[in-house]
Computed example of a mutant assay.
Amino acid sequence: MSTDYQGAREALGIRLREIRLSAPGGRLTGTQLAQKHGWDKSKVSRLENGRQTPTPDDLRMWAEACGQPETYDELLAKLRGFESHIRSWRRQLAAGHRPVQDAHNAAQANSTVLRAWESSWIVGILQTPDYARAVLTRSADLHKSPRDTEEAVRARMKRQELLYSGGRRYQIILWEPVLRALICPPAVLAVQLDRLTGIIGLDTVDLGIVPLSAPLKVPPGVGFWIYDDRQVVTETWHAELWLDDADSVATYLRAWKTLKESAVYGSDAHNLIHAARRALPSR
């Protein structure tokens, strides 16, 4: 977890403690507050010490129990402030995958130079519907989130209109293992690889592949997007990070440029894609 995020969570915890101790009817103990809502008494301690992220309902109940409901909007604003940087999958996917896709569509529509590195799967902007369906289904399984797969696939496909609308430049680098990862049936991956070969040469996309045999100056790490050198979006198993501080953006930009030094383009990229296609199992 990032230092900035943890610091913000601890600051929110300090504010929660202040509200508890300044309750108009007299300061509440942590045990008394927990009893008001049937919480485990350790929850109050975890929230106040920044060891647990509160939900909006937690904040509302806290403000009401302390006799200060007017502080709810302030607390919620603080929560939204740091959650705008680290967005847990649990919360993001509570309503399914479609809202997440819509957020990415808007972010990409508002950018002109989009750089990407991906070491795990084909990036969404280049996916076929069947490949996207496989990825989103597995994500729903992992996070036990509502299944709105078809709506999410349609939203992801709509994003691809940006490839042809002009005014943007996509600079995408994939690690070669992505071309061979069977996160979908072989027949689906075959069509997906064909789709990639058709992307090479498109005037809005620079598609590079880093061969598995290429020397790397930095480890592959996780995938990420950089929007107009002002914002980075990356993800972990538990959360998606949207970073806009200059130091973080500069670090990811250096990583992207370093990985680009190992990438091949044009016919060399074609050859890697074709080799992966030929290596697919027959069934």
Score class of each variant (00 low, 15 high):
23 A>H: 03
166 G>P: 07
173 I>W: 00
181 A>C: 02
198 G>C: 05
263 A>R: 04
218 V>R: 15
97 H>V: 04
17 R>Q: 13
89 W>V: 07
122 I>T: 13
245 D>T: 10
270 H>V: 09
224 F>S: 09
172 I>H: 03
53 T>F: 00
282 S>Q: 10
17 R>L: 06
81 G>L: 12
52 Q>T: 07
121 W>C: 12
274 H>S: 13
89 W>A: 11
162 L>F: 13
40 D>E: 12
184 C>P: 10
133 R>V: 00
243 L>M: 13
25 G>S: 11
250 A>L: 12
264 V>C: 08
48 E>T: 06
51 R>E: 12
194 D>K: 14
236 T>Y: 02
129 P>S: 04
157 M>L: 14
204 T>G: 11
122 I>R: 06
274 H>V: 10
253 L>C: 09
275 A>F: 07
119 S>L: 03
28 L>R: 02
172 I>M: 09
154 R>H: 11
171 Q>I: 13
232 V>L: 02
88 S>C: 03
148 D>M: 08
178 V>S: 07
21 L>E: 15
36 K>E: 09
250 A>W: 05
150 E>L: 02
88 S>L: 13
222 V>G: 11
213 S>H: 11
195 R>P: 01
262 S>D: 10
91 R>F: 13
177 P>L: 10
219 P>R: 12
214 A>R: 06
279 A>K: 08
36 K>C: 02
166 G>Y: 05
169 R>P: 01
105 N>S: 13
22 S>F: 03
33 L>K: 01
7 G>L: 15
184 C>H: 10
193 L>T: 06
9 R>A: 11
